[in-house]
């Protein structure tokens, strides 16, 4: 069964419809890239996958999102339970100020009720290793998370999301605020993460989508114009609008 299956999803901000009847499936251990011009709804789409969209004033939606065989919008589903199973990394690195590197990574575990120091230490190390940050911070775990460089902060945020071992990680333009070297590191990291998790990544950078993703979805004005294998979308787009976008004729 698919890990992610979105069926007829429409989303609104008040009166404004940001997503129009989107359907999409993704398998395990895939990287799915969402591309499209700004304002096309790709960020809104990922925020529907962990029920963050409804936190925005006026945000509401219709349709179904199935994660691992369960409709997360079924009545009675607690969004808190959903979000535990879906990690999220944001556009700007946002470690919690006032928390050390260690605390930033362990905060999700502590919320889940794990308080044994040894278990926390082990899981924190594991997450930091997966985020390829361990070697850089292992001696300074007590320093504030905000004292790291931008690229390190973003990897810290990835470690924070990985620590609770979610099967899905959502990334909303995670490299748009970073320099090219940090960006390259994070792209490499995403490739490795595929072993463990499914990554849904929003990007405004088509080269990035082509480099790192297995499937690509092209959004335009709230519609899903095209979705398929990345090679295919970039080499033989089915829709004329996709072709015009990837050849740089608008956007």
């Amino acid at each position: 069964m698919e890990l992610i299956a979105v069926k007829n999803l429409s989303a609104w901000f008040g009166e404004f419809q940001a997503l129009k009847n989107i359907s999409l499936v993704a398998e395990r251990h895939e990287v799915v890239a969402l591309i499209g011009p700004s304002g096309c709804g790709k960020s809104t789409f990922v925020r529907c996958l962990n029920r963050l969209h409804e936190e925005v004033p006026g945000g509401h939606l219709q349709g179904e999102v199935w994660l691992d065989g369960q409709n997360i919008y079924a009545p009675g589903v607690d969004p808190v339970n959903v979000r535990r199973g879906v990690g999220m990394v944001f556009q700007k690195p946002n470690p919690f100020p006032g928390m050390s590197i260690f605390e930033n990574v362990s905060v999700g575990l502590r919320l889940a009720g794990i308080s044994k120091r040894a278990v926390l230490a082990e899981k924190v190390e594991q997450a930091l290793r997966q985020a390829v940050l361990w070697d850089e911070v292992k001696d300074v775990l007590k320093r504030p998370g905000t004292s790291l460089s931008g690229g390190q902060q973003q990897r810290l945020c990835i470690a924070r999301a990985l620590a609770v071992e979610p099967p899905v990680i959502l990334m909303d333009e995670p490299t748009s605020a970073l320099d090219p070297i940090s960006t390259a590191k994070i792209e490499e990291l995403i490739q490795e993460l595929k072993e463990r998790v499914t990554v849904v990544i929003v990007t405004h950078n088509m080269q990035q989508a082509a480099r790192i993703s297995d499937r690509t979805a092209f959004f335009l004005l709230g519609e899903l114009v095209e979705y398929g294998k990345t090679d295919q979308v970039f080499t033989q787009p089915q829709d004329e609008r996709t072709e015009r976008y990837i050849t740089g004729r608008f956007g």
């Binding site: 339970n81 535990r84 199973g85």
Partner: peptide, 10 residues
């Protein structure tokens, strides 16, 4: 996939 959060937390 969706562990329920503990009663205590709720």
């Amino acid at each position: 996939m969706f562990e329920r959060i503990s009663l205590r937390r709720r």
